[in-house]
Write a protein that binds this DNA or RNA. Sequence first.
RNA 1: GCUCCGGUGGUGUAGCCCGGCCAAGCAUUAGGGGCUCUCAACCCCUCGACCCGGGUUCAAAUCCCGGCCGGAGCACCA
Length: 441
Amino acid sequence: MAILNDEYVKRYGGTLFLRIEDTNPHNILPEAYDMIPEDLEWLGVKVHEIVIQSDRFELYYDYAKKLLEMGKAYITTVPAEEWRRLKSEGKPTKDRDLPPEEHLERWDKMLSGDYDEGEAVYAVKTDLQHPNPAIRDWAAFRIIKDVEHPRLGDRYIVYPLMNFSVAVDDHELQLTHVLRGKDHLNNTYRQMYLYDYFGWKKPVYIHYGWVTMRDTILKTSLIKEGIKKGKYIGWDDPRLGTLRALAKRGIEPEAIRKYWIQVGLKEVDIEFSWDTLYAYNRELVESKAKRYFFVWNPKEVEIKGVEEIEGKAPLHPNIDMGFREYKLFSPIKIFVTMEDWEKIENGEIFRLKDLCNVVKREGYLEYAGNDLNIVKSGAKIVHWVPRDSLPCKVYMPDGKILEGYAEKYVENSINEIVQFERFGFTKIYKDRELVGYFAHR
RNA sequence: GCUCCGGUGGUGUAGCCCGGCCAAGCAUUAGGGGCUCUCAACCCCUCGACCCGGGUUCAAAUCCCGGCCGGAGCACCA
Protein backbone atom coordinates (compact mmCIF):
# COMPACT_ATOMS: atom_id res chain seq x y z
CA MET A 1 0.00 0.00 0.00
CA ALA A 2 2.93 2.23 0.56
CA ILE A 3 3.37 2.03 -3.17
CA LEU A 4 0.04 3.65 -3.77
CA ASN A 5 0.86 6.38 -1.28
CA ASP A 6 4.09 6.90 -3.10
CA GLU A 7 2.32 7.04 -6.45
CA TYR A 8 -0.08 9.64 -5.14
CA VAL A 9 2.77 11.78 -3.94
CA LYS A 10 4.60 11.35 -7.20
CA ARG A 11 1.62 12.27 -9.31
CA TYR A 12 0.27 15.17 -7.38
CA GLY A 13 3.29 16.31 -5.43
CA GLY A 14 3.44 16.30 -1.68
CA THR A 15 5.19 14.71 1.19
CA LEU A 16 5.11 11.08 2.16
CA PHE A 17 5.33 10.31 5.84
CA LEU A 18 6.22 6.97 7.25
CA ARG A 19 4.60 6.75 10.62
CA ILE A 20 5.59 4.02 12.99
CA GLU A 21 2.66 3.35 15.27
CA ASP A 22 4.23 1.94 18.37
CA THR A 23 1.80 2.97 21.05
CA ASN A 24 0.98 -0.51 22.25
CA PRO A 25 4.03 -1.78 24.13
CA HIS A 26 2.49 -5.23 24.37
CA ASN A 27 2.69 -5.66 20.67
CA ILE A 28 5.80 -4.13 19.18
CA LEU A 29 8.21 -5.89 16.95
CA PRO A 30 11.54 -4.24 17.61
CA GLU A 31 12.89 -5.47 14.27
CA ALA A 32 10.19 -3.50 12.52
CA TYR A 33 11.82 -0.16 13.22
CA ASP A 34 14.55 -1.09 10.77
CA MET A 35 12.74 -3.55 8.57
CA ILE A 36 9.98 -1.23 7.45
CA PRO A 37 12.22 1.57 6.18
CA GLU A 38 14.49 -1.00 4.54
CA ASP A 39 11.61 -2.67 2.77
CA LEU A 40 10.29 0.65 1.55
CA GLU A 41 13.64 1.63 0.23
CA TRP A 42 13.88 -1.63 -1.64
CA LEU A 43 10.46 -0.98 -3.12
CA GLY A 44 11.64 2.37 -4.29
CA VAL A 45 9.16 4.21 -2.14
CA LYS A 46 10.52 7.61 -1.31
CA VAL A 47 9.72 8.42 2.28
CA HIS A 48 10.22 12.09 2.99
CA GLU A 49 9.90 11.92 6.71
CA ILE A 50 9.72 9.27 9.36
CA VAL A 51 7.51 9.89 12.35
CA ILE A 52 7.70 7.63 15.33
CA GLN A 53 4.76 7.95 17.63
CA SER A 54 6.68 7.02 20.72
CA ASP A 55 8.61 10.27 20.26
CA ARG A 56 5.44 12.27 20.45
CA PHE A 57 3.73 11.40 23.69
CA GLU A 58 4.05 14.92 25.08
CA LEU A 59 2.20 16.23 22.07
CA TYR A 60 -0.64 13.82 22.59
CA TYR A 61 -0.75 14.75 26.24
CA ASP A 62 -1.11 18.43 25.35
CA TYR A 63 -4.09 17.79 23.18
CA ALA A 64 -5.53 15.44 25.73
CA LYS A 65 -5.45 18.18 28.32
CA LYS A 66 -7.01 20.70 25.98
CA LEU A 67 -9.82 18.37 25.22
CA LEU A 68 -10.51 17.83 28.89
CA GLU A 69 -10.60 21.56 29.40
CA MET A 70 -13.11 21.81 26.62
CA GLY A 71 -15.26 19.24 28.33
CA LYS A 72 -15.09 16.93 25.34
CA ALA A 73 -13.34 14.13 27.11
CA TYR A 74 -13.44 12.53 30.50
CA ILE A 75 -11.67 10.08 32.67
CA THR A 76 -13.67 7.21 33.90
CA THR A 77 -12.86 4.82 36.68
CA VAL A 78 -15.61 2.49 35.63
CA PRO A 79 -14.32 -0.99 34.76
CA ALA A 80 -14.00 -1.77 31.07
CA GLU A 81 -16.75 -4.32 31.02
CA GLU A 82 -19.28 -2.08 32.66
CA TRP A 83 -18.37 0.80 30.42
CA ARG A 84 -18.89 -1.34 27.38
CA ARG A 85 -22.28 -2.40 28.66
CA LEU A 86 -23.34 1.16 29.34
CA LYS A 87 -22.33 2.20 25.88
CA SER A 88 -24.30 -0.56 24.26
CA GLU A 89 -27.30 0.75 26.18
CA GLY A 90 -26.49 4.31 25.22
CA LYS A 91 -25.98 5.39 28.83
CA PRO A 92 -23.25 7.58 30.32
CA THR A 93 -20.92 6.40 33.04
CA LYS A 94 -21.48 7.92 36.43
CA ASP A 95 -18.44 10.16 36.04
CA ARG A 96 -18.86 11.20 32.41
CA ASP A 97 -20.49 14.50 33.21
CA LEU A 98 -18.41 15.60 36.16
CA PRO A 99 -16.94 19.07 35.70
CA PRO A 100 -13.74 19.42 33.64
CA GLU A 101 -11.75 20.38 36.75
CA GLU A 102 -12.36 16.96 38.24
CA HIS A 103 -11.23 15.25 35.06
CA LEU A 104 -8.14 17.40 34.81
CA GLU A 105 -7.29 16.38 38.32
CA ARG A 106 -7.78 12.74 37.44
CA TRP A 107 -5.61 13.23 34.38
CA ASP A 108 -2.76 14.43 36.57
CA LYS A 109 -3.25 11.44 38.78
CA MET A 110 -3.10 9.15 35.77
CA LEU A 111 0.15 10.68 34.65
CA SER A 112 1.68 10.58 38.09
CA GLY A 113 0.86 6.92 38.50
CA ASP A 114 -1.77 7.17 41.18
CA TYR A 115 -3.98 4.78 39.28
CA ASP A 116 -3.11 1.23 38.48
CA GLU A 117 -3.60 -0.43 35.16
CA GLY A 118 -7.24 -0.53 34.22
CA GLU A 119 -8.33 1.69 37.08
CA ALA A 120 -8.81 4.74 34.93
CA VAL A 121 -9.14 5.40 31.26
CA TYR A 122 -9.30 8.57 29.24
CA ALA A 123 -12.31 8.67 26.95
CA VAL A 124 -13.38 10.98 24.18
CA LYS A 125 -17.01 11.99 24.20
CA THR A 126 -18.93 11.42 21.02
CA ASP A 127 -22.63 10.71 20.96
CA LEU A 128 -24.03 8.06 23.23
CA GLN A 129 -27.09 7.88 21.07
CA HIS A 130 -25.12 7.26 17.92
CA PRO A 131 -26.91 4.51 15.99
CA ASN A 132 -23.61 2.75 15.45
CA PRO A 133 -22.48 1.51 18.84
CA ALA A 134 -18.91 1.35 17.59
CA ILE A 135 -18.83 5.12 17.43
CA ARG A 136 -20.03 5.89 20.94
CA ASP A 137 -17.43 7.33 23.36
CA TRP A 138 -14.06 5.76 22.77
CA ALA A 139 -10.95 5.20 24.83
CA ALA A 140 -8.01 7.40 23.98
CA PHE A 141 -5.45 6.80 26.71
CA ARG A 142 -4.83 3.88 29.01
CA ILE A 143 -2.42 3.00 31.73
CA ILE A 144 0.25 0.38 31.18
CA LYS A 145 2.72 -0.44 33.90
CA ASP A 146 3.56 -4.10 33.50
CA VAL A 147 5.65 -3.90 30.36
CA GLU A 148 8.45 -1.71 29.12
CA HIS A 149 8.34 0.00 25.78
CA PRO A 150 11.29 -1.05 23.59
CA ARG A 151 12.20 2.56 22.92
CA LEU A 152 10.82 4.37 25.93
CA GLY A 153 11.42 1.88 28.69
CA ASP A 154 9.28 2.82 31.65
CA ARG A 155 9.29 6.54 30.99
CA TYR A 156 5.56 6.73 30.42
CA ILE A 157 2.72 4.85 31.94
CA VAL A 158 -0.09 6.58 30.08
CA TYR A 159 -0.27 5.31 26.52
CA PRO A 160 -2.35 6.85 23.77
CA LEU A 161 -4.59 4.57 21.76
CA MET A 162 -4.42 4.54 18.02
CA ASN A 163 -7.44 6.70 17.30
CA PHE A 164 -6.15 9.59 19.33
CA SER A 165 -2.51 9.55 18.34
CA VAL A 166 -3.30 9.01 14.70
CA ALA A 167 -5.80 11.84 14.52
CA VAL A 168 -3.45 14.26 16.26
CA ASP A 169 -0.62 13.31 13.95
CA ASP A 170 -2.70 13.49 10.83
CA HIS A 171 -3.60 17.01 11.75
CA GLU A 172 -0.19 18.10 13.03
CA LEU A 173 1.50 16.79 9.91
CA GLN A 174 -1.14 18.49 7.83
CA LEU A 175 -2.02 15.40 5.89
CA THR A 176 -4.22 15.95 2.89
CA HIS A 177 -4.90 12.31 2.08
CA VAL A 178 -5.17 9.28 4.26
CA LEU A 179 -5.13 5.87 2.63
CA ARG A 180 -6.11 3.06 4.92
CA GLY A 181 -7.86 -0.28 4.96
CA LYS A 182 -11.60 -0.34 5.21
CA ASP A 183 -11.28 -2.04 8.56
CA HIS A 184 -10.56 1.50 9.74
CA LEU A 185 -13.83 2.94 8.52
CA ASN A 186 -15.29 3.19 11.98
CA ASN A 187 -12.05 4.59 13.28
CA THR A 188 -12.32 7.33 10.73
CA TYR A 189 -15.78 8.16 12.01
CA ARG A 190 -14.46 8.20 15.56
CA GLN A 191 -11.59 10.46 14.67
CA MET A 192 -13.93 12.91 13.02
CA TYR A 193 -15.11 13.93 16.47
CA LEU A 194 -11.64 15.19 17.31
CA TYR A 195 -11.51 17.14 14.08
CA ASP A 196 -14.83 18.71 14.88
CA TYR A 197 -13.96 19.56 18.48
CA PHE A 198 -10.69 21.18 17.54
CA GLY A 199 -11.98 22.68 14.34
CA TRP A 200 -9.35 21.00 12.22
CA LYS A 201 -9.44 20.73 8.49
CA LYS A 202 -10.25 17.19 7.44
CA PRO A 203 -8.10 15.23 5.04
CA VAL A 204 -9.52 13.08 2.29
CA TYR A 205 -9.93 9.49 3.42
CA ILE A 206 -9.70 6.58 1.07
CA HIS A 207 -10.45 3.15 2.37
CA TYR A 208 -9.33 0.13 0.46
CA GLY A 209 -10.56 -3.44 0.71
CA TRP A 210 -9.19 -6.55 2.29
CA VAL A 211 -6.40 -8.31 0.49
CA THR A 212 -6.18 -12.06 0.73
CA MET A 213 -3.35 -14.18 -0.55
CA ARG A 214 -4.22 -17.74 -1.24
CA ASP A 215 -1.85 -20.26 0.35
CA THR A 216 0.27 -17.53 1.80
CA ILE A 217 0.74 -16.50 5.37
CA LEU A 218 0.58 -12.77 5.84
CA LYS A 219 -0.07 -12.35 9.53
CA THR A 220 3.06 -11.05 11.16
CA SER A 221 2.23 -12.75 14.42
CA LEU A 222 2.14 -16.13 12.70
CA ILE A 223 5.33 -15.46 10.82
CA LYS A 224 7.09 -14.38 13.95
CA GLU A 225 6.02 -17.51 15.73
CA GLY A 226 7.04 -19.68 12.80
CA ILE A 227 10.48 -18.18 12.73
CA LYS A 228 10.88 -18.62 16.44
CA LYS A 229 9.92 -22.26 16.22
CA GLY A 230 12.31 -22.81 13.36
CA LYS A 231 9.53 -23.57 10.91
CA TYR A 232 10.67 -20.73 8.71
CA ILE A 233 14.29 -19.87 8.06
CA GLY A 234 13.57 -16.16 8.56
CA TRP A 235 11.53 -13.25 7.29
CA ASP A 236 12.68 -14.13 3.80
CA ASP A 237 11.53 -17.74 3.83
CA PRO A 238 10.29 -18.49 0.31
CA ARG A 239 6.99 -19.79 1.62
CA LEU A 240 6.10 -16.37 2.99
CA GLY A 241 4.55 -13.44 1.25
CA THR A 242 6.86 -10.89 2.84
CA LEU A 243 8.68 -8.39 0.70
CA ARG A 244 11.92 -9.90 1.83
CA ALA A 245 10.85 -13.31 0.64
CA LEU A 246 9.83 -11.93 -2.72
CA ALA A 247 13.12 -10.10 -3.02
CA LYS A 248 15.04 -13.25 -2.23
CA ARG A 249 13.23 -15.08 -4.98
CA GLY A 250 14.13 -12.44 -7.47
CA ILE A 251 10.83 -10.64 -7.71
CA GLU A 252 11.67 -7.08 -8.64
CA PRO A 253 10.22 -4.07 -6.89
CA GLU A 254 9.01 -2.67 -10.21
CA ALA A 255 6.84 -5.73 -10.72
CA ILE A 256 5.25 -5.27 -7.32
CA ARG A 257 4.69 -1.61 -7.97
CA LYS A 258 3.08 -2.29 -11.30
CA TYR A 259 0.87 -4.90 -9.79
CA TRP A 260 -0.50 -2.63 -7.08
CA ILE A 261 -1.00 0.25 -9.41
CA GLN A 262 -3.18 -1.84 -11.64
CA VAL A 263 -5.09 -3.14 -8.64
CA GLY A 264 -5.70 0.41 -7.51
CA LEU A 265 -7.81 1.51 -4.60
CA LYS A 266 -11.29 0.17 -4.15
CA GLU A 267 -13.40 -0.76 -1.21
CA VAL A 268 -13.94 -4.20 -2.62
CA ASP A 269 -11.97 -7.04 -1.18
CA ILE A 270 -9.47 -8.47 -3.56
CA GLU A 271 -7.71 -11.73 -3.91
CA PHE A 272 -4.06 -11.30 -4.63
CA SER A 273 -2.97 -13.00 -7.82
CA TRP A 274 0.46 -14.52 -7.90
CA ASP A 275 0.04 -15.26 -11.59
CA THR A 276 -0.34 -11.63 -12.44
CA LEU A 277 2.59 -10.56 -10.30
CA TYR A 278 4.72 -13.27 -11.88
CA ALA A 279 3.69 -12.14 -15.32
CA TYR A 280 4.90 -8.63 -14.59
CA ASN A 281 8.10 -9.92 -13.13
CA ARG A 282 8.73 -12.26 -16.02
CA GLU A 283 8.42 -9.32 -18.33
CA LEU A 284 11.16 -7.52 -16.40
CA VAL A 285 13.44 -10.43 -15.96
CA GLU A 286 13.09 -12.28 -19.25
CA SER A 287 15.57 -10.17 -21.10
CA LYS A 288 18.27 -10.24 -18.50
CA ALA A 289 18.15 -13.72 -17.07
CA LYS A 290 20.91 -15.92 -18.41
CA ARG A 291 19.92 -19.41 -19.39
CA TYR A 292 21.45 -22.45 -17.77
CA PHE A 293 20.69 -26.09 -17.22
CA PHE A 294 19.63 -27.42 -13.88
CA VAL A 295 18.83 -31.07 -13.38
CA TRP A 296 16.74 -31.93 -10.38
CA ASN A 297 16.16 -35.43 -9.18
CA PRO A 298 19.20 -36.41 -11.24
CA LYS A 299 19.72 -39.68 -13.02
CA GLU A 300 23.26 -40.42 -14.12
CA VAL A 301 23.64 -42.01 -17.53
CA GLU A 302 26.47 -42.77 -19.87
CA ILE A 303 26.48 -41.92 -23.54
CA LYS A 304 28.09 -44.75 -25.47
CA GLY A 305 29.25 -44.83 -29.00
CA VAL A 306 31.41 -41.70 -29.10
CA GLU A 307 34.76 -40.65 -27.78
CA GLU A 308 34.19 -36.95 -27.62
CA ILE A 309 31.29 -34.53 -27.96
CA GLU A 310 31.34 -30.77 -28.17
CA GLY A 311 28.37 -28.54 -27.59
CA LYS A 312 27.58 -24.90 -27.28
CA ALA A 313 24.53 -23.15 -25.91
CA PRO A 314 23.70 -19.45 -25.88
CA LEU A 315 23.30 -17.74 -22.55
CA HIS A 316 20.19 -16.11 -23.95
CA PRO A 317 18.12 -17.26 -26.92
CA ASN A 318 17.34 -13.81 -28.33
CA ILE A 319 20.02 -11.55 -26.92
CA ASP A 320 23.72 -11.91 -27.47
CA MET A 321 25.26 -12.69 -24.11
CA GLY A 322 27.83 -15.25 -25.14
CA PHE A 323 27.84 -19.00 -24.81
CA ARG A 324 28.30 -21.93 -22.53
CA GLU A 325 30.56 -24.49 -24.07
CA TYR A 326 30.84 -28.17 -23.35
CA LYS A 327 33.55 -30.69 -24.17
CA LEU A 328 32.88 -34.21 -23.07
CA PHE A 329 35.30 -37.11 -23.31
CA SER A 330 34.78 -40.81 -23.00
CA PRO A 331 33.49 -42.20 -20.74
CA ILE A 332 30.80 -39.58 -21.18
CA LYS A 333 28.53 -39.37 -18.20
CA ILE A 334 25.76 -36.85 -17.78
CA PHE A 335 22.73 -36.22 -15.62
CA VAL A 336 19.18 -35.88 -16.79
CA THR A 337 16.17 -35.51 -14.59
CA MET A 338 14.34 -38.64 -13.64
CA GLU A 339 11.08 -37.24 -14.97
CA ASP A 340 12.48 -36.96 -18.44
CA TRP A 341 14.17 -40.31 -18.28
CA GLU A 342 10.99 -42.07 -17.34
CA LYS A 343 8.99 -40.43 -20.08
CA ILE A 344 11.23 -41.78 -22.78
CA GLU A 345 10.81 -45.28 -24.10
CA ASN A 346 13.64 -47.65 -24.74
CA GLY A 347 14.75 -47.30 -28.33
CA GLU A 348 13.34 -43.79 -28.62
CA ILE A 349 15.53 -41.14 -30.15
CA PHE A 350 15.64 -37.75 -28.49
CA ARG A 351 17.82 -34.69 -28.30
CA LEU A 352 20.02 -33.47 -25.51
CA LYS A 353 19.58 -29.78 -25.98
CA ASP A 354 22.56 -28.05 -27.52
CA LEU A 355 24.61 -31.24 -27.47
CA CYS A 356 23.59 -34.17 -29.60
CA ASN A 357 20.99 -36.80 -30.36
CA VAL A 358 20.81 -40.04 -28.45
CA VAL A 359 18.76 -43.19 -28.37
CA LYS A 360 17.62 -44.51 -25.06
CA ARG A 361 18.76 -48.03 -24.34
CA GLU A 362 18.43 -50.24 -21.30
CA GLY A 363 20.30 -48.16 -18.72
CA TYR A 364 22.41 -46.08 -21.08
CA LEU A 365 22.28 -43.75 -24.06
CA GLU A 366 23.58 -44.40 -27.51
CA TYR A 367 25.06 -41.56 -29.49
CA ALA A 368 22.96 -40.79 -32.54
CA GLY A 369 24.67 -37.95 -34.34
CA ASN A 370 23.90 -34.30 -34.29
CA ASP A 371 21.24 -33.79 -36.91
CA LEU A 372 18.83 -31.16 -35.72
CA ASN A 373 16.15 -32.34 -38.07
CA ILE A 374 15.05 -35.02 -35.67
CA VAL A 375 13.44 -32.28 -33.64
CA LYS A 376 11.33 -31.27 -36.58
CA SER A 377 10.06 -34.77 -36.86
CA GLY A 378 8.91 -34.69 -33.27
CA ALA A 379 11.77 -35.91 -31.15
CA LYS A 380 11.71 -34.73 -27.54
CA ILE A 381 14.23 -32.22 -26.29
CA VAL A 382 15.71 -32.80 -22.91
CA HIS A 383 18.08 -30.71 -20.89
CA TRP A 384 21.06 -32.25 -19.20
CA VAL A 385 24.14 -31.41 -17.25
CA PRO A 386 27.71 -32.71 -17.48
CA ARG A 387 29.13 -35.01 -14.85
CA ASP A 388 31.34 -32.24 -13.43
CA SER A 389 28.41 -29.98 -12.53
CA LEU A 390 27.82 -28.36 -9.19
CA PRO A 391 25.40 -29.57 -6.59
CA CYS A 392 22.53 -27.16 -6.25
CA LYS A 393 19.45 -26.94 -4.08
CA VAL A 394 16.42 -25.01 -5.16
CA TYR A 395 13.89 -23.80 -2.63
CA MET A 396 10.36 -23.72 -3.96
CA PRO A 397 7.63 -21.39 -2.70
CA ASP A 398 5.56 -24.34 -1.53
CA GLY A 399 8.34 -25.37 0.81
CA LYS A 400 9.72 -28.19 -1.30
CA ILE A 401 13.44 -28.37 -1.82
CA LEU A 402 14.74 -29.75 -5.07
CA GLU A 403 18.22 -31.18 -5.10
CA GLY A 404 20.27 -31.71 -8.18
CA TYR A 405 23.04 -30.29 -10.30
CA ALA A 406 23.52 -26.98 -12.04
CA GLU A 407 26.05 -26.59 -14.77
CA LYS A 408 29.25 -24.98 -13.56
CA TYR A 409 28.76 -21.78 -15.55
CA VAL A 410 26.07 -20.83 -13.09
CA GLU A 411 28.89 -19.70 -10.86
CA ASN A 412 29.15 -16.64 -13.07
CA SER A 413 25.65 -15.62 -12.08
CA ILE A 414 25.71 -15.66 -8.30
CA ASN A 415 23.17 -13.21 -6.87
CA GLU A 416 21.49 -12.91 -10.23
CA ILE A 417 18.18 -14.19 -11.43
CA VAL A 418 18.68 -16.80 -14.10
CA GLN A 419 16.40 -19.02 -16.05
CA PHE A 420 16.95 -22.72 -15.66
CA GLU A 421 15.75 -23.95 -19.00
CA ARG A 422 12.53 -25.94 -18.92
CA PHE A 423 12.33 -25.23 -15.21
CA GLY A 424 11.89 -21.56 -14.46
CA PHE A 425 13.35 -18.32 -13.22
CA THR A 426 15.42 -18.76 -10.13
CA LYS A 427 17.60 -16.46 -8.12
CA ILE A 428 21.02 -17.87 -7.41
CA TYR A 429 23.02 -17.58 -4.22
CA LYS A 430 26.05 -19.29 -2.92
CA ASP A 431 27.10 -20.02 0.58
CA ARG A 432 28.91 -23.34 0.76
CA GLU A 433 27.22 -24.63 -2.31
CA LEU A 434 24.83 -23.23 -4.85
CA VAL A 435 21.32 -22.53 -3.75
CA GLY A 436 18.45 -21.19 -5.77
CA TYR A 437 15.18 -19.58 -4.80
CA PHE A 438 12.51 -20.27 -7.34
CA ALA A 439 10.59 -17.24 -8.56
CA HIS A 440 8.20 -18.49 -11.20
CA ARG A 441 8.16 -20.15 -14.60
C1' G B 1 -28.13 -8.56 16.89
C1' C B 2 -26.61 -3.35 15.64
C1' U B 3 -23.88 0.09 12.25
C1' C B 4 -21.38 0.78 7.81
C1' C B 5 -19.36 -0.74 3.03
C1' G B 6 -19.39 -3.31 -1.44
C1' G B 7 -21.08 -6.78 -5.61
C1' U B 8 -18.33 -6.59 -14.06
C1' G B 9 -15.32 -13.50 -16.84
C1' G B 10 -10.97 -18.05 -12.50
C1' U B 11 -8.12 -13.44 -10.86
C1' G B 12 -7.41 -8.02 -11.18
C1' U B 13 -9.21 -3.87 -13.64
C1' A B 14 -11.93 -0.16 -17.37
C1' G B 15 -16.90 1.62 -18.03
C1' C B 16 -21.15 3.48 -13.48
C1' C B 17 -20.83 10.18 -11.08
C1' C B 18 -22.72 13.03 -16.55
C1' G B 19 -28.01 6.46 -19.36
C1' G B 20 -27.20 5.35 -25.87
C1' C B 21 -20.70 4.97 -29.41
C1' C B 22 -20.84 -1.69 -24.41
C1' A B 23 -23.88 -7.71 -28.76
C1' A B 24 -18.83 -4.75 -22.38
C1' G B 25 -12.37 -2.97 -23.38
C1' C B 26 -7.52 -4.38 -21.12
C1' A B 27 -4.18 -7.59 -18.32
C1' U B 28 -3.44 -12.32 -16.28
C1' U B 29 -4.86 -17.35 -16.29
C1' A B 30 -6.78 -21.72 -19.01
C1' G B 31 -7.27 -24.35 -23.91
C1' G B 32 -5.57 -24.62 -29.16
C1' G B 33 -2.20 -23.34 -33.26
C1' G B 34 2.48 -21.05 -35.32
C1' C B 35 7.67 -20.02 -34.41
C1' U B 36 11.87 -21.65 -31.54
C1' C B 37 17.39 -26.91 -30.16
C1' U B 38 13.45 -24.42 -23.11
C1' C B 39 7.58 -26.04 -20.51
C1' A B 40 10.74 -18.69 -21.50
C1' A B 41 9.96 -14.95 -25.15
C1' C B 42 7.26 -13.80 -29.66
C1' C B 43 2.73 -14.26 -33.12
C1' C B 44 -2.38 -15.96 -34.01
C1' C B 45 -7.04 -18.11 -32.36
C1' U B 46 -10.68 -19.82 -28.58
C1' C B 47 -13.46 -20.31 -23.85
C1' G B 48 -15.13 -16.97 -20.16
C1' A B 49 -18.56 -11.54 -16.73
C1' C B 50 -22.47 -6.78 -15.88
C1' C B 51 -25.67 -10.94 -8.33
C1' C B 52 -31.32 -11.45 -8.77
C1' G B 53 -36.20 -9.19 -9.37
C1' G B 54 -39.04 -5.06 -10.30
C1' G B 55 -39.40 0.19 -11.82
C1' U B 56 -38.09 4.87 -14.74
C1' U B 57 -36.84 5.50 -20.06
C1' C B 58 -37.32 5.27 -26.99
C1' A B 59 -32.78 3.22 -24.55
C1' A B 60 -29.74 0.73 -18.16
C1' A B 61 -23.65 -2.47 -16.38
C1' U B 62 -24.79 2.68 -15.80
C1' C B 63 -30.58 6.02 -12.44
C1' C B 64 -34.53 4.31 -8.42
C1' C B 65 -36.67 0.45 -5.09
C1' G B 66 -36.57 -4.45 -2.96
C1' G B 67 -34.06 -8.93 -2.23
C1' C B 68 -29.76 -12.06 -2.21
C1' C B 69 -24.64 -12.64 -1.44
C1' G B 70 -19.89 -11.02 0.39
C1' G B 71 -16.90 -7.99 3.66
C1' A B 72 -15.65 -4.67 7.77
C1' G B 73 -16.47 -2.80 12.60
C1' C B 74 -19.06 -3.06 17.38
C1' A B 75 -11.48 -3.72 22.23
C1' C B 76 -8.54 0.14 27.87
C1' C B 77 -5.28 -3.75 19.45
C1' A B 78 -3.54 -1.35 15.18
